[in-house]
Design a protein around this nucleic acid. Structure first.
Length: 271
DNA sequence: CCATATACCTGGCAGC
DNA sequence: TGCTGCCAGGTATATG
């Protein structure tokens, strides 16, 4: 579920409320994708200074390190003054003086990992090869073009890989390619300069719009305040197999690339 | 270096 | 009602 917009919406929904909170306890439930890496007591007494995002990771900066959180495919966070008993799929409670941050994740592809700093292991391994942040000035067209030029894989899969640009997952990859009229199967390196420029703009546009809409709630995504997103209602192609293209009326096609579904309009996305 | 397949885990749904 | 198989927002890892 959570691509860049959902992670950013989640961050915005609790970052200011948790800032300055002191950790009084950390409870871990069933194993997640990776172990925390230290005893939960290491975090007790530390203050949450701020919450940042890198790609699809949330970084909770604390006095003596950083807690990395990832929502995997099915994760969500909730931050509230108090929390009831943990449910079947609640796997982390960060108890603080300002509230409890709870990770809910049925599939447990998410993670909570402690690192001395983002430049040390294990954070370095997780964050070290990430590509450019699409919603910052660092996402330069020239660098984007250079990154794509080296790749012979289909553009959709290069976007998903996250080592050129981060945060574009399965929904927004299909959406951005639709907006820029690019066929998802085209080799990244074959895209013309103007086409890459259009894609560069489309990525920023679709991600920013999705953040505005509170993300996409395909199934059960909610922010840390419990709000659902609305972007799925205005998706152009994702999940619209067989339905008429909103631009030209042609039936939307669904194909499989790298074991993931891809959606596109065969008429609008010629190349 | 690059591309692709696999694995992780659970729930929901279509079909029988 | 219950079973089976398939599908789902991600990404580290192994393999070619």
């Amino acid at each position: 579920m959570p691509e860049l917009p959902e992670v950013e919406v989640t961050r915005l929904s609790f970052a200011s409320r948790i800032a300055g909170a002191r950790v009084s306890a950390l409870h871990m439930g069933k194993p997640l994708r990776w172990p925390l890496g230290v005893s939960p007591t290491v975090l007790v007494g530390q203050t949450v200074l701020r919450v940042r995002r890198r790609g699809k990771y949330l970084l909770l900066d604390m006095d003596h390190g950083v807690l990395l959180l990832h929502l995997g495919m099915s994760g969500s966070l909730n931050f509230a003054p108090t929390q009831g008993p943990a449910g079947k799929h609640d796997h982390m409670d960060l108890v603080t003086t300002l509230g409890v941050l709870r990770l809910h994740d049925p599939r447990r592809f998410g993670a909570a990992v402690w690192s001395e700093s983002e430049h040390h292991e294990p954070a370095l391994k997780l964050l070290g090869k990430l590509g450019m942040e699409p919603l910052t000035d660092g996402f330069e067209l020239k660098l984007f073009q250079q990154g794509l030029k080296k790749r012979s894989a289909p553009i959709k899969q290069v976007l998903l890989a996250g080592d050129v640009v981060v945060g574009v997952g399965n929904i927004y990859a299909s959406e951005a390619l639709f907006l820029s009229c690019i066929r998802p199967t085209v080799k990244a390196q074959k895209l013309s300069g103007p086409r890459v420029a259009k894609l560069h703009t489309a990525i920023r546009q679709v991600l920013a719009r999705a953040v505005e809409q509170g993300g996409s709630s395909l199934k059960d995504f909610v922010s840390a305040e419990g709000n659902t997103g609305y972007f799925q209602l205005e998706a152009s192609v994702y999940g619209r197999t067989g339905l008429p293209c909103r631009v030209c009326g042609t039936a939307i096609k669904q194909i499989v690339q790298g074991q993931r579904s891809t959606f596109f309009c065969p008429a609008c996305q010629k190349l």
